[in-house]
Design a protein around this nucleic acid. Structure first.
Lengths: 337, 337
DNA sequence: TAACCTAGCTTAATCGCATAACCGACGCCT
DNA sequence: AGGCGTCGGTTATGCGATTAAGCTAGGTTA
């Protein structure tokens, strides 16, 4: 009982059925410029091709041409917000238009050389990876394989050190918008929350600096205090407890909407009136802001023309040149807090 | 100026440096059973391999062997909750252990034959795709290419029709848990929200049926009313307006936490006391539940032993047999609503 | 001493596709 | 008649890896 497994059609099959050589089939199906093949033959080849349900073998093609249309994206450890999803969606679409295929690789948290080897095995044109996945040795390995590396969320000095392109959010600007808003509401004693978790902390620190610079610029004399917090209701309650004991700040930037949501709950539990006693600003502008009562004020990052980003990425890959992209700008969405 | 692009090392390079043939290198690096090669030679080959930073060329290997270790995952259109992320993480890990590589394909919403062609081009062993991406013609194309299809969220009858394996959530059971809880709280007039958006609606209907069956079983005489809603604050307000006008239900199952969050906001805006006047249950048990005041009661799906799922998937793929997996069970998390 | 093993390799074919180089037939010009 | 250009293809090669089959040197057995 030889159960014959279905074998997808190849150009050889097409060639046989159409009575031409495989070269001709290849020329036709790729619309090769410079190939002189009359329309009649083209028609015949094409009709045989989809009669057989031909699907090109991506590996074979890329093996032959030595190029690949793959771009690997490796997620950050952190849970993705809507900004990241939308960005990914746009990027995928943009790359597709330019002839590239975006693939998200693995959901596990491997990193360094080991991860780089796995990525390199697929011979992509580029890898877009969270900064937390990259090590100098890993990057070196990718460079040797002629794979362009985009580091997501890497600060400039580290990017230069690694010699990679970057894709970053303007955390500083985001914090600055939040700071300006709080100062504008008359806050003089501003608390800024920085997540304790490693990856998030780095972004938190940059947001904090943004708040600081905005406060110095627009509300001189106002104080900015830094606090750490975990993403749990308990940690939020503890932090609010500290505030009640030390003296309430009159404005809080809660790192993002999720942290702010936890804080809002804890503040209400402690009978603090929001926004009368304490102003609160989140970031990301997720739907959550409109679920909470009072409704949460937030700073969102808006992406400017997504197609452009894909184009600039492709350009950098083709020219093997490092670029530093930051395709979002912060916008305040004012609500009740 | 001929800028020579870095070319990754091949087994030919290794063979040359180690003074052996490529066959020997291949045997060594793959630990081929039955190959008679002394340890000394093996050592030499291996040391040359990592001296050159050799990374195998996945495409070349899969072209030659005719098999691929790829499993393609195509996301549903809907935004991923934490359940989906965690599942993906576990799946990826489990498949890795079994020698497979999980890749997430594209973030765009292409579907049907066109999408199937793109997936088939990579010659994966299996495709895990949201039901909304599949059409009979698309599935047929994949079958011809000997690619196993796992449909996510497909009801049994459609799965049989398509001839695919499935991976589903127990929406019925989830709704039932919610229904039991509401009946247990003494609710006699239960409103169930079904999302208007197409993909979500299907799941909503099945959750609704779950509520109905639980109510019939545990609270005979109680009524279950069905309502539609969009995922916007405006739609929530409108729905609450209807309830106020028609007479408030005393229990609401809000489809999931996000919809319930919007509803809770709208209920509070209408001065409805929750849970005194209206009990509310969400689903997914996301952090949001603990941000809202009152804290949201929710039904979560807990995955049972993730490694087992990966194993069963691989088994099905290897034996080319359709299986139907539903590796989550519903658990109620009671809070204040 | 011839026949036969076995260890330790090598040779060569092949996967599906792209593409440079070539080739025969025909028409046209001189 | 001979040379040349163009059309409509074909032939041949190789990308990097796997793997069946073969081959050689040395040792063992009959």
């Amino acid at each position: 009982m030889t159960s014959i497994r279905p074998r997808p059609a190849t150009i050889t099959d097409i060639a046989r059925r159409a009575g031409v050589s495989t070269a001709t089939v290849s020329y036709v199906l790729n619309d090769a410029p410079g190939a002189r093949i009359p329309e009649a033959t083209r028609e015949r080849v094409r009709s045989v091709a989809d009669e057989l349900g031909y699907v090109p073998h991506a590996s074979a093609r890329s093996l032959r041409t030595g190029t690949s249309d793959l771009v690997l994206h490796v997620q950050m450890d952190v849970v993705q917000g809507p900004l990241a999803s939308r960005f990914l969606h746009d990027l995928s679409h943009g790359l597709r238009e330019l002839g590239y295929t975006l693939l998200q690789y693995g959901a596990e948290r491997s990193r360094g050389v080991k991860a780089a080897r796995a990525w390199a095995a697929m011979r992509p044109s580029a890898v877009v990876a969270g900064d937390d996945r990259l090590t100098p040795a890993g990057v070196e390995l990718l460079r040797k394989a002629d794979i362009h590396v985009f580091a997501v969320g890497t600060p400039p000095e580290r990017a230069k050190e690694l010699g990679v392109s970057t894709l970053t959010m303007d955390h500083h600007g985001l914090g600055a918008r939040a700071g300006e808003h709080l100062v504008g509401r008359g806050c003089r004693d501003i608390a800024v929350v920085v997540p304790r978790e490693d990856t998030l902390r780095q972004m938190g620190e940059r947001r904090l600096e943004g708040v600081r610079s905005a406060v110095e610029r627009t509300g001189p004399g106002a104080s900015v205090r830094r606090y750490e917090m975990d993403w749990t209701p308990e940690s939020a309650a503890e932090l609010v407890g500290t505030w009640v004991a030390e003296g309430l700040p009159d404005g809080v930037f809660g790192y993002n909407d999720e942290f702010s949501g936890l804080l809002l709950g804890a503040l209400l539990d402690a009978d603090v009136r929001v926004p009368e006693q304490v102003g609160l600003v989140g970031a990301d502008d997720v739907m959550l802001c409109r679920m909470l009562r009072p409704r949460l004020t937030s700073v969102r990052l808006e992406s400017e023309e997504p197609g452009a980003t894909a184009r600039r990425i492709v350009e950098a890959v083709r020219e093997r040149a490092a670029v530093h992209l930051s395709p979002w700008k912060p916008v305040l969405v004012e609500r009740e807090t």
